[in-house]
Structures are given as C-alpha cells and as structure tokens.
C-alpha cells in the first residue's frame, strides 16, 4: 500500500484517509501515477480501467477496509431500489433512472445524460464513488 494510506483499516480513520487510500489502491491496481488519479476521475473513461480491473479494485478495497462489496451493492450505488423496468426499460435508462443516478452519484452527474444505457453504468464510477461505498459501509449504511 502507498504511504498515503497507513491507517485506512482503522475504523476511526478520518474521512480524508479513506479517499486517499482508495486513490492509492486504484493507482496501484491500474499502474497509474498517483497524481493522475483524482477523486473525480472516471475509472473506465479517464483511467482506462476494464471491467476486470474494477473487480481487482473491489478485492483490494475489501481487504484494505475489511468490508465486503457485492455486485448487487455496486448496482444499487447507481440505481437505488428501482426495478429493471423502472430504471432502464429495454436497457436504455429512463428519465426517472437518470434522475436517480444523479441523486445517488452526484460525483458523476456531469456524465449522466439521456441515451445512457444500463450496461454503461460502471463507466460512471469514479474514485469518489468507491470512496463513498467505503464510507457507507463503515457507517453501516446499505450502499
């Protein structure tokens, strides 16, 4: 782990440490210099992550923070509790779905626009999205 994240596994670690640890994990996983990895960097679009890279990152984050992140939780981060039909009928995200996305992923709001497809949701995930999941888990919230 980077020297930026010495106390990340400490539940009492300050919020800034979570962000910095997540940045360091993502930089290491993707082989990117830390200064290229910003909280608003989109993992797939800005940092060139592939879907398997996201899994690598999830495993690292789980180990670092002693938490569990399921695929269902990752999807809920983006879509909340909406049904498939409400969220993305035919795969295209509805107006209500886009509104929910903007609400749940404000860090990616500028990328959320009409025409977005459900399969593209992972492309919205930023460094901050993962940090938010860690915060949610540590606070006992459903993420």
């Amino acid at each position: 782990m980077s020297e930026l994240a010495p106390a990340a596994s400490d539940p009492a670690a300050p919020a800034a440490t979570v962000e910095e640890s997540v940045r360091a994990i993502i930089a290491t996983s993707l082989g990117r210099p830390l200064d290229e990895v910003h909280l608003d960097s989109a993992l797939m679009n800005d940092l060139g992550a592939e879907s398997l890279d996201l899994l690598d990152i999830v495993f690292c984050i789980e180990r670092e923070f002693a938490i569990e992140i399921t695929r269902g939780e990752m999807e809920r981060v983006a879509r909340g509790d909406m049904t498939d039909e409400e969220f993305a009928p035919g795969g295209l995200i509805s107006e209500a779905g886009l509104a929910r996305l903007r609400q749940l992923m404000p860090e990616a709001a500028h990328r959320i626009a009409a025409g977005l497809r459900a399969r593209e949701i992972l492309s919205l995930f930023t460094v901050q999205t993962f940090a938010n999941m860690v915060h949610g888990k540590r606070e006992g919230r459903q993420v």
Partner: peptide
C-alpha cells in the same frame, strides 16, 4: 462451490 459460499459468487 467454494466461491458460491462467499459474496462474489455473482461476479
């Protein structure tokens, strides 16, 4: 079967 016991079975 091992992975199915964990939380990444779907992945």
């Amino acid at each position: 079967a091992i992975i199915a016991r964990g939380h990444h079975a779907e992945d």
